[in-house]
Design a protein around this nucleic acid. Sequence first.
DNA 1: ATACAAATGCAATACATTTGCATTTGCAAG
DNA 2: CTTGCAAATGCAAATGTATTGCATTTGTAT
Lengths: 142, 142
Amino acid sequence: MEREIQVSDLLRQHDLKKTPARLTVLRLLSQSGFAVGFAELEQALGELADKVTLYRLLKSFEDKGIIHKTIDPEGFPKYALCQDDCGTHRHVDRHIHFSCTQCKKTSCLPHVSIPTVILPEGYLAEAFQFNISGICKSCALA
Amino acid sequence: MEREIQVSDLLRQHDLKKTPARLTVLRLLSQSGFAVGFAELEQALGELADKVTLYRLLKSFEDKGIIHKTIDPEGFPKYALCQDDCGTHRHVDRHIHFSCTQCKKTSCLPHVSIPTVILPEGYLAEAFQFNISGICKSCALA
DNA sequence: ATACAAATGCAATACATTTGCATTTGCAAG
DNA sequence: CTTGCAAATGCAAATGTATTGCATTTGTAT
């Protein structure tokens, strides 16, 4: 299966061991076109892994730059595979998230680049979180 | 003082009693002009009120439609006075916010305008939440 | 000045996330 | 195919944040 291979490679490329829990999470994330909530991931794991393990594996995926975390406008954390060159180095999201107020789905807008922001003197930027909410394409058509 | 009168009226109009804690919170929110974090409100209150009171007061303001709560992209709740056209809709900030990872304060970057973002076809934007986190001027100097 | 409901403070509770530590497991070297 | 060891996991406990119960205080209409 094509997807399975990709997911395994993803782990190997980042020196992470191939465990059932990790494979399940990555498969779900790669299949979903949207950012996935913690509860959904937990449910997908079922008895496969503890909640703490889920927290930890998500953390390590984040650190490695495999996934990124975003907070939707209602305060729920969502996780998504990093699209492009979210390098293993410093992990800064170079894209904007879009949260649909209707279907509550959060997606990444990979082709919308983050505009350059010039900070006032003395400020030191570490991370950017840009979020736009509104009506997504699917809901707009419905 | 003009602002003081407005704030008192706001309470009276909603059948809420005029207490020091409530006045302090409303004054801060009306002066701020943008969404304020919980920590900042707490600090502004000082010994004036308990943290629990702050939670409860914010909740009652929300219920009455005086303020609304939003979650910033880092997951922290922010509170802002409702505008006339605010209704039940999400608050639209026209600023970029800067969250200091050290002092936890969120400030507005008024001279940094929101860059134009071009959304893909079919997406309809309603609100923007742009946030940059890092070290603020005060903390950088300390 | 008084009375009563609203507002508050403190303690206890409820959840969500993180951390410590002992045990298990993936995987590579032999 | 075994073996060794660091990585990964599970469970318990600690942290952090938000909520609730209840006795006491306070605002305000009378």
